[in-house]
């Protein structure tokens, strides 16, 4: 079995974000990057499947992004990926989900993967499109937002998370692509020996030019901080004073405290 896991490196979401010079993306210069949270579940699920199948499947990890992306790739390899493909693209953020997915599909086309795992969305862009587009371009069956996954004899049974806590159960035949939701599993910490061994694993470098030359279908016109909604009161300062003020406000504005 051949497995592909698509991952993205994103900034730590607790960072402070500001628009970049031409206001088309955020300024990356002072941010710490890590693997997209959703993708950690994707990697973990792929590795669990490999373990379930006695180590037979080969897991390829793919990521598109600049040089720094190698760190996220190596993490995925340390978690249990076998080899990686790094599509080195410094302007990745100017590409829309269609272009990103087209690059992935154009790489994957020749590789005949049986199963592809992606995150359900990226934490920075949040389009929730890339995985599904890849599946459509490759003609794979596809299900999104997995909180449950099991595999048996060529069939994947997925549990999709729906609104209100309900789950939808469905079966797909391979080849398939699934997108992973938070809570699908418990992503492992990569062990130190595995981090060091990942150094020896192959990371093939590709350039966007070798893949798809699709034009964008959507473009970012501008990026900016959301307008602050007025009205909300911000209480700063010392705990004791904050406690007193909040108590006063609640007594005045709500009926819950007598």
């Amino acid at each position: 079995m051949k497995i592909l896991v698509c991952i993205k490196q994103v900034p730590d979401m607790e960072s402070r974000f500001r628009p970049n010079g031409d206001k088309t993306w955020y300024d990356e210069s002072d941010l710490a990057f890590r693997m997209n949270e959703y993708d950690e579940y994707a990697v973990e699920q792929a590795v669990q499947l490999k373990e379930q199948l006695g180590g037979e499947p080969e897991i390829t990890v793919l990521s598109i992004g600049p040089e720094r992306t190698v760190e996220a790739i190596k993490k995925a390899l340390a978690m249990g990926g076998d080899r990686a493909v790094h599509i080195r693209d410094d302007r990745y953020y100017q590409k829309d989900p269609w272009q990103i997915a087209s690059m992935i599909a154009s790489y994957a086309k020749g590789e005949s993967f049986d199963l592809i795992f992606t995150g359900m969305q990226s934490q920075d862009r949040g389009s929730a499109q890339v995985g599904v587009i890849v599946a459509e371009l490759l003609g794979l069956s596809c299900a999104t937002t997995l909180v449950g996954f099991s595999y048996d004899g060529g069939t994947v049974t997925v549990k999709r998370e729906l609104e209100g806590g309900i789950k939808g159960v469905a079966k797909l035949k391979l080849p398939a692509l699934v997108t992973c939701q938070l809570g699908l599993n418990t992503p492992r910490y990569p062990t130190l020996p595995n981090i060091m061994k990942a150094k020896k694993k192959e990371i093939a470098a590709l350039t966007p030019a070798e893949l798809s030359g699709e034009a964008e279908l959507t473009a970012t016109a501008a990026i900016y901080p959301p307008a602050k909604k007025g009205g909300g009161l911000v209480l700063e300062g010392e705990i004791g004073a904050q406690v007193d003020r909040l108590m006063g406000i609640l007594k005045e504005k709500t009926a819950v405290l007598r």
């Binding site: 993490k75 990569p190 062990t191």
Partner: peptide, 14 residues
């Protein structure tokens, strides 16, 4: 190095 950063991340997360 990337490996050192990943070890730092594992240590920090743990």
């Amino acid at each position: 190095t990337e490996e050192q950063k990943l070890i730092q991340e594992t240590a920090r997360n743990f």
